[in-house]
Amino acid sequence: MNMLAKTSIQPPYYAVIFTSVRTEGDGGYGEMAERMAKLVADQPGFLGMDSARAGIGITVCYWDSLESIQRWKEIEEHRVAQTLGQREWYKSYRVRICKVEMEYGWDFAAP
């Protein structure tokens, strides 16, 4: 069952929204995406992630601070993935960083 990310802190916190259009073929993308998901989960300040792909890929990572986001951007293995993405995996992408001021939601609880 797919679950939405549940952050461990109350707002405010930050969201990095990565939207992309992929090139054809895998070319190692799937393996790297799995590796990045594991690596990011171990980073200080990481709060959770939501991701979907249907034509346009959207991944939203939640962070406790702008400093945590910057540290993640500078990790060598992540930098390699960024370079490969620009060279091989993406036709286009955008990164947007937002401050989350409010959060609310609902989860269905089966009887």
Rank of each mutant, 00 (worst) to 15 (best):
K91P: 02
A15K: 05
W106I: 10
V95N: 12
M32V: 06
I9A: 07
L4H: 06
D42K: 15
Q10K: 15
R22G: 04
Q82V: 01
N2H: 12
V40C: 08
D64Y: 02
G55V: 08
F46W: 14
V95A: 06
G25T: 05
P12I: 13
S92C: 07
I9H: 10
I58K: 06
A109M: 10
M32F: 00
A37G: 11
F46L: 04
Y104Q: 15
A5I: 06
R22I: 06
S8P: 01
A54K: 12
A33T: 11
A81H: 00
G25W: 01
K6W: 00
L66F: 14
W106C: 10
P11W: 09
N2C: 04
G30D: 10
G30V: 00
G57K: 05
Q70I: 03
S20C: 08
Q86N: 11
E77N: 04
A81Q: 01
A109W: 02
P44N: 09
Q43A: 13
A81F: 04
T7A: 01
Y104C: 15
A81D: 01
Q70S: 13
D64I: 05
M1Q: 08
V21M: 05
W63G: 09
V95I: 15
Y14P: 09
M3F: 11
K99S: 14
F46V: 00
W63R: 09
R87D: 13
W89F: 15
Q86E: 14
L39T: 06
V40N: 11
V60E: 12
A37T: 09
M3I: 06
P11K: 11
Y13M: 08
E103W: 10
S51E: 07
Y13E: 01
S8N: 12
Q86D: 11
L66W: 10
A54E: 13
R35P: 00
G30A: 07
C98M: 12
Y13H: 15
R35A: 14
Y90C: 02
W63P: 09
L84T: 01
D50L: 06
V80T: 10
A110W: 10
P12T: 12
S65W: 13
S65H: 13
P111K: 07
G48R: 04
Q10Y: 04
W89D: 02
